[in-house]
């Protein structure tokens, strides 16, 4: 089972164990949607989903992910239909330069599940808080140099409201 599964496709693991998942996506698979920002786990631009959980692709060596299911921004929606959060990012103008956006969206998609299953955050754990405050805390691992934060929170809040309605 020395394969890694990315967006539903299986690939052999890289020969060089030094290869991070992020470099593997870029150099071996030409999947450039996941961005390299700081390359040190500080900015969140490289956020992907590993078995549904958001993680920094720059800090994971690919060989450690044998048998895991990875979802990158290329696997979030489909060629014909955007994920509701992708659509919300457009509607709410939740980006300017767009470099952090793929990481923001992957992170936001995981956040929707975490909040739906009532996982605690430090603000929800320690005090009464608004949904916006909770989202801001949960998204603190994704930096935006353009400062699009209010609109990013708007987009996520919109999808949460949609999900609650349905």
């Amino acid at each position: 089972m020395s394969a890694i599964h990315i967006n539903g496709e299986s690939y052999p693991l890289p020969d060089d164990p030094r290869t991070t998942l992020l470099d593997f996506l870029h150099q071996n698979l030409s999947l450039f949607g996941t961005k390299k920002g700081c390359d040190h786990g500080q900015c969140g631009a490289c956020t992907v989903l590993v078995d549904g959980q958001r993680m920094n692709a720059c800090l994971m060596l690919a060989f450690q992910l044998k048998g895991k299911n990875i979802t990158t921004i290329e696997g979030i929606g489909s060629n014909t239909e955007l994920h509701p959060l992708q659509q919300a990012f457009i509607e709410k103008d939740a980006f300017q330069c767009g470099y952090c956006t793929s990481g923001q969206i992957c992170s936001g998609v995981a956040l929707l599940n975490e909040m739906a299953q009532s996982d605690p955050s430090i603000v929800s754990a320690q005090q009464d808080c608004s949904t916006r405050e909770d989202i801001a805390e949960r998204m603190s691992g994704n930096l935006c140099r353009c400062g699009a934060y209010p609109n990013i929170v708007d987009a996520i809040e919109q999808v949460i409201a949609l999900e609650r309605q349905s």
Binding site: M55, S107, A125
Partner: peptide, 16 residues
């Protein structure tokens, strides 16, 4: 313990 853990790092890092 829960509060201390949730105070540290980010969700991405805590997941790993």
């Amino acid at each position: 313990l829960s509060q201390a853990l949730l105070s540290g790092a980010t969700v991405q890092l805590r997941n790993r």
